[in-house]
């Protein structure tokens, strides 16, 4: 484990409309960052981040998908062929053998931050 991994500012949380995603550039990688604003969860904002690359359609599109919720677990549905990926684990719900990378993310002082990848 490196201890040098830094949190990097991406944008302000207000720059991401509630319950949508954006694509962040993180050290040459494309990261899909989602602003989840759950009605049930005290209307507080949280962010979750996964790879922007859809392994089925082979295109960088996941940030433009639709956020879905089941039992308080959030997933992202690919805008192309609609497979869903869990935002906490990266696991594809339609195909156990596929999962996508996940990234550490947080909101800090109104800023969305991603953890550097070492």
């Amino acid at each position: 484990m490196t201890t040098s991994a830094q949190w990097i500012d991406i944008c302000k949380i207000l720059d991401i409309p509630k319950n949508t995603g954006v694509c962040a550039h993180l050290q040459g990688e494309q990261v899909a960052v989602f602003h989840i604003h759950s009605r049930s969860n005290g209307a507080e904002s949280q962010v979750k981040a996964v790879s922007n690359f859809d392994p089925f359609a082979k295109a960088n599109v996941l940030s433009r998908g639709l956020i879905t919720e089941l039992d308080e677990k959030y997933s992202i549905a690919s805008p192309l062929l609609k497979q869903q990926f869990c935002l906490d684990t990266g696991k594809c719900q339609q195909d156990d053998s596929v999962s996508i990378p996940i990234y550490e993310s947080r909101i800090n002082n109104g800023f969305v931050q991603l953890k550097e990848v070492s």
Binding site: S38, T68, E69
Partner: peptide
């Protein structure tokens, strides 16, 4: 609030 639960999904949204 009126008649649903949770936060919605790819069908209802």
């Amino acid at each position: 609030d009126d008649c649903g639960n949770g936060d919605g999904c790819e069908i209802c949204k």
